[in-house]
Amino acid sequence: MINQVIEFITLLTTGLTAGTAIYVSLVTHPAWLSTSVASAQDNFTPVFKGSVASQALFSTTAIVGGIAFGILTDEYLWILGSVLMIINIPLTLIFLMPVNNKLMGKKGNISNTEANKLFKKWGILQWIRTVVVLIAFILFLWLGIFK
């Protein structure tokens, strides 16, 4: 019974992480690009700050759940899925956070031209994160269905 609960929670939180990433990549980011740079920058900070806690919680739960389920069931591909989720941590900290900080004005004021370039770079980096999390979710889903 406990294994089923862990599996369910892992699938749920990975799916929520992947779903959010897809939404941001397909809807939020293009919306920012279709508005003025000033409007996009004004909107970026509250969206970013509003999503940090939930994404951290969902990702951490998925990582721990995948590792726990893999160990408890000797199905080590679940650990591989967790490793894919873990990859997003350095991707975020090393590549995305510097862009986030500039867009939120933490690194001083930036010109509209620079902000526009940063939003485009941010979108590419977000798509990389989205694909990684989506692969983890598909792996977990496949393992859950065909075990």
Rank of each mutant, 00 (worst) to 15 (best):
L143H: 01
W78I: 03
G50R: 02
T73D: 10
W32P: 06
H29G: 08
L77M: 13
M104S: 02
L11V: 13
L125K: 01
L16S: 04
E7H: 12
L16P: 07
M104N: 13
A18T: 09
L143G: 04
S54D: 11
V52E: 08
L11Q: 01
F119T: 00
F95C: 15
T60N: 09
L12V: 06
T73Y: 07
T17E: 09
A136T: 00
N109D: 08
E114Y: 12
A53I: 14
S34V: 02
A38G: 12
L141W: 08
T45S: 15
Q4G: 13
I89D: 15
K121S: 13
K117P: 03
N116Y: 14
I67N: 06
L96T: 05
K117H: 15
I22K: 07
W122M: 08
L91C: 14
I124C: 05
L141H: 02
G144L: 10
P98T: 01
P46E: 01
I110K: 00
N112M: 06
T28N: 04
I145R: 05
S25E: 05
S34R: 11
S59P: 00
L91V: 12
V99K: 11
I67L: 07
P90N: 02
L33S: 04
T10R: 01
P46Y: 09
I138A: 15
L26A: 11
T13I: 02
H29T: 03
D74V: 12
G108W: 06
S111K: 03
G81S: 11
T28A: 11
W78V: 01
S36K: 13
K117V: 09
T60K: 14
L91F: 06
A40D: 08
D74R: 14
A40H: 05
Y76K: 03
L84Y: 03
A21L: 09
K102I: 04
F119K: 04
L26H: 13
T13W: 01
V133K: 01
S59Y: 04
G81T: 13
A62Y: 02
L125T: 02
D74A: 13
I145M: 10
K102P: 06
